[in-house]
């Protein structure tokens, strides 16, 4: 009331801006939300359940049959898992361009499941110790 009385135009304008920004960032149709929906659609039922529970999912490399864990994220989010279930080494590869996390994770999943050797040839290895997840 005070704001509208003293600065009617400025206050209303500010409120409009805040509302618009809020709509953009909370929208169910922003790039992040869309990419998450697409990812969930393309995960197997087991991967989807794992992702919902733990924010990561496992994939099996098509060439080596090794297990990889893809964490929610846009970089340094793929870890090779050893037979005991421990992280062994990290692999960093992403699709080119500015993509949301869900899209990046989906491209990583498809690449490992359909062209593991090709993906790892492009990828940079990184030691897991450097990762914040462990």
């Amino acid at each position: 009331m005070f704001l509208f009385g003293r600065y009617p135009v400025e206050a209303r304008s500010l409120i409009r801006v805040v509302r618009r920004l809020s709509r953009i960032f909370s929208s169910k149709d922003n790039s992040e939300a869309r990419s998450q929906r697409l990812l969930r659609t393309w995960l197997t039922p087991e991967q989807r359940a794992q992702f919902d529970a733990k924010r990561y999912f496992d994939v099996i490399g098509c060439d080596s049959r090794k297990r990889y864990r893809i964490y929610y994220g846009t970089a340094t989010n793929v870890h090779e898992i050893d037979v005991a279930g421990r992280p062994k080494v990290g692999w960093c590869f992403v699709p080119d361009g500015y993509l949301a996390a869900g899209d990046i994770m989906l491209a990583q999943k498809i690449s490992l499941e359909t062209n593991e050797v090709g993906a790892l040839l492009i990828a940079n290895r990184f030691p897991i110790e450097l990762s914040r997840r462990y």
Partner: peptide
């Protein structure tokens, strides 16, 4: 493309029978 079980495969030529085809940009090392 993916089948009903959710298994994914790469396609190198256009498949006119595919219900859904997904395209993602080339990979680069991060």
């Amino acid at each position: 493309v993916r089948n009903a079980a959710g298994d994914v495969s790469r396609v190198r030529s256009f498949d006119p029978t595919a219900e859904e085809t997904l395209f993602f940009p080339r990979l680069v090392g991060g």
